[in-house]
Amino acid sequence: MNIDLKADNPVMTVDSVTEIALVTDSVSPIGMISKFLGHGNDCFIMDIPTQTVWKFDNDGQLIGKLSRIGNGPGEYGRLYDIDLDSDGNLYLLDMQKKKILRYSADSMEFIAETKLPGNAVAFCGADSTTFYLNNPGGKKGITAKLGIFKSGEKDINPLVESAIKDEYRAFGANSTHIWRSGNDLLYYDRFTPDIYELTQDSIISYATINGGEFPSAEDVQALIDASKNHDYAPFMEESKMVKDLLYAYKTADGIALGLSTVPQTHVYKSFEDGKTYTIRTDGNAHFNGAVKGAIGVWNDRLVTFKPSENDGNPSLVLYKVDKQ
C-alpha cells in the first residue's frame, strides 16, 4: 500500500462524533494523557507525571487506577509505557527495573511479571509471553530499532537493526514507533518510508510513504550529533523534512498518519477509494481546542483530547474524517 504525500492531495475534514469529559475526584486530577488505549467500552490512560494508569468507562467515569510505586509484587519503579492484548491483559513497562508487569484489564489486579535482559523505551504485547520492544538494548547499549523478546529466553532478538550507531538519539525522533489500533499493531522504521504490521511472531511490510523528504545517512548522523551537543539551530531550515511519524492509527475506514514536520502534517489513506488525503482539522467548531492528531482508537473511531480550561481533567474527543 502506498501513502502519497503530495501537495495537491484532496482534503478531508474532521467530523467529531462525541466528546467525553473524564471525571476523577478533585484532589487527584489527571496530570497528562501520555498514552491512550481503548478496550471495549472502557479505556486506559497512562499518566507519566503522576505515574498512574487510569481506567474510565465510555461515559468518562473513573472505574479504576494503578498507582503502585515500590518494590513489592505488582509495584514499579518508573512507569514508562502501557499496552493491552486481545486476551484481556494489561501490561506496564517498568523502565527502571527493566521488567513488564501484567495485570487483569478487568480487575486491574496484578498477575505476573517478566524480567527483561535489557532496556526498551516502548513496547507492545503480542501475548502474555511475547513482547515487541522499541529501541531495545542490553549491556552494549541500544543496538536495534525493533526487537522481540519471549519469556524464558536470555536475549532480545533484533528484528530491525539500527543502520547508524546511536540513531535513537537523533533530534526529531519520537520515542514511540509501535502503535496499537485494537488488535492491529503498526511499526514505523524511523527515517525511512517503511511501515510494518506486527503479528504474534512475524513482521510484514504494510505501507510505503511516497513523496516525503527523508534524511540521508549523513543527515541522520548530523541529527545525532546535534542532539548530543544540544545544538538544534542548524536544522530549523530543514523543519519540513519528514524525520519521523508521530502516530499511525487505523480504523475500518482508513489509516491516519501524523508527520513530524513543522507545521505538523496529518494525512489519511482511505480504504474505500485508495486515495491519500490531507486532514484539515480547523474547520469544525466542536474540534477547536483539541490537540490536533490522533492519540489512539476507540470503538473504531480516532481519538484526540481537549485540555481542561480550568486546570481540571481533559476531555476525549472521538472523531472520524470525511470528504469535503
Rank of each mutant, 00 (worst) to 15 (best):
1 M>V: 13
8 D>N: 12
12 M>A: 09
14 V>F: 10
19 E>S: 07
20 I>M: 06
22 L>W: 01
30 I>T: 06
37 L>E: 14
39 H>T: 02
42 D>T: 10
63 I>P: 07
65 K>M: 07
71 N>V: 11
78 R>Q: 15
80 Y>D: 10
81 D>P: 00
81 D>Y: 01
87 D>I: 03
89 N>G: 15
89 N>R: 14
93 L>A: 03
97 K>Y: 13
97 K>P: 07
101 L>R: 14
106 D>R: 09
108 M>W: 03
115 K>F: 08
115 K>A: 14
122 A>L: 00
129 T>L: 12
131 F>I: 04
138 G>A: 12
140 K>C: 11
141 G>V: 06
142 I>W: 08
148 I>P: 03
157 N>P: 00
163 A>S: 10
166 D>N: 15
167 E>A: 09
167 E>R: 10
168 Y>K: 03
169 R>I: 02
184 D>E: 15
185 L>C: 05
187 Y>L: 01
194 D>H: 13
203 I>V: 15
204 I>S: 12
205 S>E: 15
210 N>A: 11
210 N>D: 13
213 E>D: 15
217 A>Q: 14
219 D>N: 13
222 A>Q: 15
230 H>P: 05
234 P>N: 08
234 P>K: 06
236 M>K: 13
243 K>S: 00
244 D>N: 13
245 L>V: 01
247 Y>F: 15
247 Y>H: 14
250 K>W: 07
256 A>F: 09
265 T>L: 12
266 H>T: 11
270 S>L: 07
274 G>S: 03
277 Y>L: 01
277 Y>S: 01
277 Y>T: 04
279 I>L: 10
281 T>M: 15
283 G>M: 01
283 G>Q: 02
286 H>W: 04
288 N>L: 12
289 G>N: 07
290 A>H: 08
295 I>F: 04
300 D>M: 06
305 F>K: 05
308 S>F: 00
316 L>F: 10
320 K>G: 13
